[in-house]
Structures are given as structure tokens and as C-alpha cells.
């Protein structure tokens, strides 16, 4: 209450000083969660990329069982939301498989990785399918094996097309990491919540700073996405 009265006083300079002090105080507090956010992001991004290529290629496989099985994985993870998957895995992993992962960190990484892996596998599949049919035929005419065709001709062309979407989904993953605070991981948002509950009137500055934190983390990803868009468009003939 005291703080609120202070704010409403018409002394802009004083108010500014208070806000500056609060920022200086809050910033290092939030930064304590930085390494959790970043490690969860990196690990889940690696898992997601891996799943994307595995599932994306499996869905193009000639074997119907492999195709249906990966199709099931992709549709289940794309059809439900990340927050549901996160909580489900949080309770289900120890229960169904009888193992403790040892930490919630892994639960978060697995949930985010599998979720965005499913989305990205569609990107991989779509990009490979969109490489012109003639390329594949030409490679066959040059007597390349199926594997050579994919590795030397189709894949290098498809990867370029994937870049912008991979960038976009990595930003989505960064946003998704904020959910791990809900299962007790000490990320940026977790420390933000702690600060808010210790001083309610500070809430606006705390959450604004949390948002700024995430935005700063997103900036390099935004830059990379734009770069990826540029690369994917460069020197490619249409059709």
C-alpha cells in the first residue's frame, strides 16, 4: 500500500528513480533462472531437430508400419497442447515406466522436444516432397541408389527450404520453455513469480522485465530466422 501511494505522487523524477532502483534490484534476481531457460531450450531444440528428421523421413518410408507409427506420434503431439503433454509426462513417466528421470529438467526437455519435433517433422516432410520430381528422376537416370539420391540431390535442396520454419519453431520453443516453471523448474519465470509473491506492487516491473528477458533471448533467433529466409530464397529458380 505504501508503495502505491508513493507512485501516485506527482513527482516524476522520484518515481523514475524508484523504478530504476527496482530494475537494478530485480534484474540479477531474474538472471539466476537464465541457465535453466537456456539449457532447456538448447537440449529440447536438439531433441526436436533429431525427432524432426527421424519422423519426417520415417513418414516418407516405404514401410507402412513405420509410416503409420510415426504418423500416430506426429498427430498425437500436434493434436494436443504442450502444457497438457508436459503435465501428462510429468505424472506418467514415473507411473507407466516405473522410472524416475531424476529431475524435472528431463521431463521439460522431453515434452518440448517431442512436441516441436512433431511439428518440425511436417516441415521436413513437406520440404522433401516439394523438391521437384525431375530432380529425383534425374538422379535415378544417373544411376544413383535411393540413399545417394536422398543424400546428394534431394536433401541439400530440401534443407534450405526448411531453414525459416526451423527458425520460427525455435522461437516457439523458447516461448514454450516458460512452461517448465509450472513443474517447478527454476527458470526466469519461476524467479519472476517468487519476486511477485514477495512484493505484489512490484508485479508490473517484474513481469515486464521477464518479458524483456525472453525478448532479448529471442533476438538472435529472430535474426537467424531472417537470415534463413534469405538463404532459402537465394539463387533458387521457381518451379
Amino acid at each position: 500500500m505504501f508503495n502505491l501511494e508513493f507512485y501516485s505522487e506527482p513527482k516524476p523524477k522520484l518515481e523514475g528513480v524508484i523504478i530504476m532502483n527496482a530494475i537494478i534490484e530485480i534484474f540479477p534476481q531474474l538472471a539466476r533462472g537464465l541457465h535453466v531457460t537456456i539449457t532447456v531450450l538448447l537440449a529440447s531444440a536438439i531433441l526436436a531437430y533429431l525427432m524432426a528428421f527421424i519422423a519426417g523421413l520415417c513418414r516418407l518410408s516405404g514401410n507402412i508400419i513405420i509410416r503409420k507409427f510415426t504418423g500416430f506420434y506426429v498427430e498425437v503431439f500436434r493434436g494436443t497442447s504442450l502444457i497438457v503433454q508436459l503435465f501428462w509426462l510429468y505424472y506418467a513417466i514415473p507411473m507407466l515406466f516405473g522410472i524416475q528421470l531424476g529431475s524435472n529438467w528431463w521431463t521439460g526437455v522431453i515434452a518440448i522436444g517431442l512436441n516441436y519435433g512433431a511439428y518440425l517433422s511436417e516441415v521436413v516432410r513437406g520440404s522433401i516432397l516439394s523438391v521437384a520430381q525431375g530432380q529425383s528422376e534425374a538422379a535415378t537416370a544417373l544411376n544413383m541408389s535411393r540413399f545417394q539420391r536422398m543424400r546428394l540431390v534431394i536433401f541439400p535442396q530440401a534443407v534450405r527450404m526448411m531453414l525459416p520454419e526451423f527458425g520460427n519453431y525455435t522461437i516457439q520453443m523458447l516461448k514454450g520453455t516458460s512452461l517448465v516453471s509450472l513443474i517447478g523448474m527454476t527458470d526466469i519465470l519461476y524467479y519472476g513469480d517468487i519476486l511477485r509473491s514477495s512484493n505484489l506492487s512490484q508485479a508490473p516491473i517484474v513481469y515486464l522485465l521477464v518479458l524483456v528477458f525472453y525478448f532479448i533471448l529471442a533476438l538472435p533467433l529472430i535474426w537467424l530466422t531472417r537470415k534463413g529466409e534469405h538463404i532459402s530464397k537465394k539463387g533458387v529458380a521457381n518451379g
Partner: peptide, 25 residues
Amino acid sequence: MEFIRSTPPLVQLFFLFYAWPMIPG
């Protein structure tokens, strides 16, 4: 727009729900 788009909706919800009532004025 870029700011809104690249920050977590969860934090934005918390901001509106917990922080907005605390903003003086």
C-alpha cells in the same frame, strides 16, 4: 508486434492477471 510474438504467452497472461491491477493510474 515482434515483441508480443516472441515472448511467452504464459508470461503475458501473468502480466495481465497479476501485474495490470498493480499499475498505478
